[in-house]
């Protein structure tokens, strides 16, 4: 998702990421390999061109690609209507309570939006060659739909279903009780959406919502680390040597994320 994107780069894209040739030891093999013009890169951003490693470890700046922070601001994939619907959906899957915000205020919809706008949304890393056929549940998802397309189709079908069922109202306008009944119907396969699988959409939405609630805040969800605070998870800490044999004691330090404590960093949207 973040690195090693499947993409076809133009030669211009390659420039800065091209690894410097190692200190050359003469040899035709080396030159032939290293001087090959790279026109097509598969599964790569920078620094992952075919290369020769010899003599020393090939240290390279940012070889592992640090994560890209979710950008603040408006929706990147959803339309305004879609975004509002997803906010309403995630707030029923994870409702607010007196201690912890719900999915909407935790940023789950923002998280999903940013994920769908990236390589996850387009399923570009998955095997998407045909023929596509329905299999057994044990054979896994065989749909040609990417996550982004599935959201788009299902949200449109959900809107149509709501307006037909609830006197012209959208999902955002119906009472929580009806929202929950509808979600439960999708989960059980009892509510059918036109032209798309309501159940498959529900499963994807539930998975992505929980991801948005518990993933590192750098991706736009888990805002203020509410998901981590709720369960007592200290986040991206790296050293518990003093604590491993302190049994049955609550760990005292608050969570940290990849970008630090929530009050130190800007927030997405």
């Amino acid at each position: 998702m973040i690195i090693n994107k499947l993409q076809l780069n133009s030669p211009d894209d390659v420039g800065s990421g091209m690894p410097r040739p190692p200190q050359a030891r003469p040899g035709i093999r080396r030159r032939e390999l290293m001087l090959t013009t790279a026109t097509t890169l598969l599964f790569s951003t920078h620094a992952v061109l075919a290369r020769v490693v010899q003599d020393s470890l090939p240290w390279e700046q940012n070889a592992g690609s640090p994560p890209t922070e979710a950008t603040p601001g408006p929706w990147t994939y959803f339309t305004a209507e879609e975004g509002a619907t997803v906010e309403a959906l995630v707030d029923r899957l994870i409702p607010p309570d007196p201690q912890t915000p719900g999915g909407k205020d935790a940023g789950c919809a923002v998280f999903i939006d940013r994920q769908l706008a990236g390589p996850y949304g387009t399923a570009e890393e998955l095997y998407m060659r045909g023929p596509f056929a329905d299999g057994t549940p044990q054979q896994g998802n065989q749909s040609p739909l990417t996550p982004a397309v599935r959201y788009r189709e299902a949200l449109a079908a959900l809107d149509k279903y709501c307006r037909a069922t609830y006197a012209g109202r959208s999902f955002t306008q119906i009472p929580d009780n009806d929202k929950d009944k509808l979600l439960s119907g999708l989960e059980k396969g009892q509510v059918h959406l036109e032209g798309t699988s309501g159940r498959a959409f529900f499963e994807l939405l539930l998975q992505n919502t929980q991801e948005g609630f518990f993933a590192d805040p750098v991706y736009g969800g888990n805002r203020n680390m509410v998901g981590w605070k709720m369960i007592g998870y200290p986040g991206a800490r790296y050293d518990y040597r003093d604590w491993v044999d302190r049994h049955n004691e609550r760990y005292p330090l608050p969570p940290v994320g990849i970008t630090g404590r929530p009050e130190w960093v800007r927030k997405a949207q």
Binding site: A47, E60, G64
Partner: peptide, 17 residues
């Protein structure tokens, strides 16, 4: 790709579920 500790899994962002 080539992978190494310092470049590819630094504790700065290795803990990313």
């Amino acid at each position: 790709p080539w992978r190494d500790t310092a470049t590819d899994f630094p504790p700065a962002y290795a803990q990313d579920e």
